[in-house]
Design a protein around this nucleic acid. Sequence first.
DNA 1: GAGTAAGTTGACCGACTGGTCAACTACCTT
DNA 2: AAGGTAGTTGACCAGTCGGTCAACTTACTC
Lengths: 207, 207
Amino acid sequence: MSRMPRVSDMKGRLTDSAMELIWHNSYGATSVDAICERAGAKKGSFYYFFKSKSELAAAALEADWGKKKVQMDEIFSPTVSPLKRLDRYFDFVHDRLAEMQKKCGSILGCPLLSVGSEVSTQDQMVREAIDRIIDHKVNYFISAVRDAAAQGLIEAADPDAKARALFACYQGTLAQARIQNDVELLREFKTVAQEVLGVKRARARAV
Amino acid sequence: MSRMPRVSDMKGRLTDSAMELIWHNSYGATSVDAICERAGAKKGSFYYFFKSKSELAAAALEADWGKKKVQMDEIFSPTVSPLKRLDRYFDFVHDRLAEMQKKCGSILGCPLLSVGSEVSTQDQMVREAIDRIIDHKVNYFISAVRDAAAQGLIEAADPDAKARALFACYQGTLAQARIQNDVELLREFKTVAQEVLGVKRARARAV
DNA sequence: GAGTAAGTTGACCGACTGGTCAACTACCTT
DNA sequence: AAGGTAGTTGACCAGTCGGTCAACTTACTC
């Protein structure tokens, strides 16, 4: 009879704590000590589970993505009309960031972008984790844009390229909101999205 | 007769060195020692000119903006047709970043965004410097978009809002290029810009 | 040359950093 | 209770970090 291993929740506490700190502050400004303190861990436990700070950050981003994927699957369900998927997503993110602002005083934008920009030239493990996650996230946009094009809701010679452009636009807007600490910038994004997508005017109201 | 003060170029060497390092790496990963080494300075000189690392970073970003302003004034000269101003700018940035990639192996994107994202929740001096610079840069976009609308080249209920959206989209694309280390993302931006702007089709070729 | 102020230096500081590791504890099965 | 392993701890490490400061040097004017 094989042994039943102990179940510790420490790994999750560490990734959650790391995620909160690197999103709120920055990767560089987040120390292993601070992560441990927040997680109620000692440093030795940290290094039992993760080889390095970098490995933890990558794991934290991926664990966070795992949680967000569930929400995105729901928001982008193919049972929802394509343009409405995007609208729901923008509203969802806006509400989440506004809520977080109440708690911590700042608009945090997207961690993939802030942490990605910060470490991309120096830490390939974290950069690659972020790249993988971005690839997944872009796919939601791509499927929505493809469906919208197939349904004749938008003009798109190349739906995939358009989806990627829209995603980049959204990331830029999220970054601006973080830098300026102004959530209102996000409220206006739906209009921008319609322009990027080339939403057909007669049908626009059908979103 | 008042004394003629000595002229030292140290301040400029420090801001230049700091700019290079925080753009290439990150603010947090750039140490005062590294900046001094790069500038050929000793730490005491650093602190003779700047009260803190933060003050130097703000000064470095502003000095860099001073240099870039000259280039942007030329590229966005009102003697150039508005949509062509934007095209020239996108080409200029693309070429600059591609050149820098050859030297340092990375696409560096825009320092305002990478450093801004990194420090905005923690360092108000640097964040405010970045905000000021962004405000200036957006004005080039605003004037181009206003002129384009006035000339009937684009559709714009609110040219200012459209210019801001275009700027944010460009920043997002620059950030993606940095994270993915792929300059080709920038080449495609002109198409996105035309869509965001609602460039009128019959006139698009006149850009 | 003398005087002065701008600029530079080297040595220093306390705190912090990411990481190491032997010893210990807790949990599970037998 | 014993055994074994997963997990935890506390103490430690060398190096780095942003910053300080007295002493010195240099450049300029008179």
